[in-house]
Design a binder for these strands. Structure first.
Lengths: 239, 239
DNA sequence: CGTACAATTGAGAATCCTCAAGAGCAGTGG
DNA sequence: CCACTGCTCTTGAGGATTCTCAATTGTACG
């Protein structure tokens, strides 16, 4: 059953403090709202945009979550990252105007579409928006660096613990519980992202459960001993 | 012996097509030159900026090369990447105004310093400069994604081959030979970057030599069979 | 020429992967 | 209501790659 809900725009959106409108004045937000196109919601596994496509718009997440990945010449996929509400997707295309990765919805999700033609024009007219975009770009780069640290020379145990801790921190920033959340991605996606196999991910989750660090029920994760989790991570930068 | 050389500025710089001045008009380049501070050259192992420092400036490389790395809580380093002439360093600081990584010179090097206060002001006055900065930011993000692909679930052989191929492509873009170049970083730096140990890096180089793919003489690399190298890589996106 | 450091090479050990089978859960249809 | 199918996730055993430890060679620099 699907209800037709009133469309939420930036001034009413709880995510606006984490998203593009942050730091803007009221009339500036209004101008931003004017260029936002509201796409129909996406279903699980639905493609938002594909690697190689010309980029017409950037996308901000209103609800749900996404996975972005690169398909290599050999045909296999490498997951680049997961996106949560309030985050901006498509920034990798700013170089050449083409998406360098594909992005799919992990669950039912909705996004705000920002047509680049209008958005660029607006940025040049509103310095505060330009500044905020810069901050977001800097965050994207810093976050990619964290991923490089995560993937470089860490044990499966460290990777798994870091993955859970990072998600916990991101959910906390969104106002959700920091100790209990549901994974929107499957084990295979986690494994691919961390450069491991599904079996190893599963074993590490079991291991963390046995240590009393977390409780795992399918995709539900509960953190029982945050200090111990942080001790296992330890080697992570997490700015 | 050190000669005092005339300072090269953007209009005379061979790198300008790869750097910030790309796409700017003559008078705009002049304005950019006006805000560039020429730092004294750095020596090998000299720190350009440190993780956590407040970012006052961005830096473009005139000559030489750099290594940037993150120091984790546990105290160990993870190399994030290597920078070559024409590239812009410090972009990760745009989020909070603090560098999230440290950057050191790998050899004698010189940089153009761009004080952020002046640079931001100039960007808002010159739309073409703003656009070019965006392109560079997009490139940085896309390149970080390539690094994530490189580190995720690839064999030591693939990592090593990809590393050499990527460097070759970057040197080619700079106008240098694509088949013969000198590594400015040591084996330890390569190993740390690729998430391997020095021994494994050494063994993979030996292996690639035995296959007739490359010739290694200390830090000198010569590519003897580019097709075979690409076959070994294969799984790399390399946009 | 000798010292210090970087790089290579070898042997054994540990982690993670591969292959294989089984368990848990959701959806379908009789 | 329950078996049946398909999927994801878990668990086990053996094997391969990479790491660790150790020794040797090679190169740069005083």
């Amino acid at each position: 059953m699907k209800l037709t809900q009133p469309t939420i725009t930036c001034p009413d959106c709880k995510l606006s403090e984490l998203c593009l409108p942050f730091g803007l004045q009221k009339n500036e937000v209004t101008q931003l709202v004017d260029i936002v196109k509201n796409k129909r919601p996406l279903q699980a596994d639905e493609l938002l945009y594909g690697q190689g496509q010309a980029c017409e718009s950037l996308y901000a997440i209103k609800s749900g979550s996404f996975r972005s990945f690169i398909t290599t010449l050999a045909g296999d996929e490498q997951t680049i990252g997961f996106y949560l509400p309030g985050e901006l997707m498509g920034l990798d295309s700013l170089q050449h105007g083409r998406f360098t990765c594909s992005t799919v919805a992990l669950e039912t999700a909705s996004v705000c579409e920002l047509p680049l033609s209008h958005f660029n024009e607006l940025c040049s007219r509103i310095p505060r928006l330009q500044t905020q975009l810069m901050r977001i770009l800097g965050k994207e780069i810093a976050s990619d660096h964290d991923k490089i640290v995560l993937l470089g020379h860490r044990s499966a145990k460290e990777k798994m613990a870091t993955f859970i801790l990072m998600l916990s921190l991101r959910y906390t920033a969104l106002g959700f519980s920091s100790t209990q959340f549901n994974l929107s991605m499957g084990r295979q996606d986690i494994a691919n992202f961390l450069g491991l196999t599904v079996e190893t991910v599963s074993r590490q989750l079991t291991y963390l459960s046995q240590q009393g660090v977390i409780t795992v029920k399918q995709r539900g994760i509960q953190i029982d001993n945050l200090d111990l989790l942080k001790t296992i991570v330890n080697a992570c930068p997490l700015h």
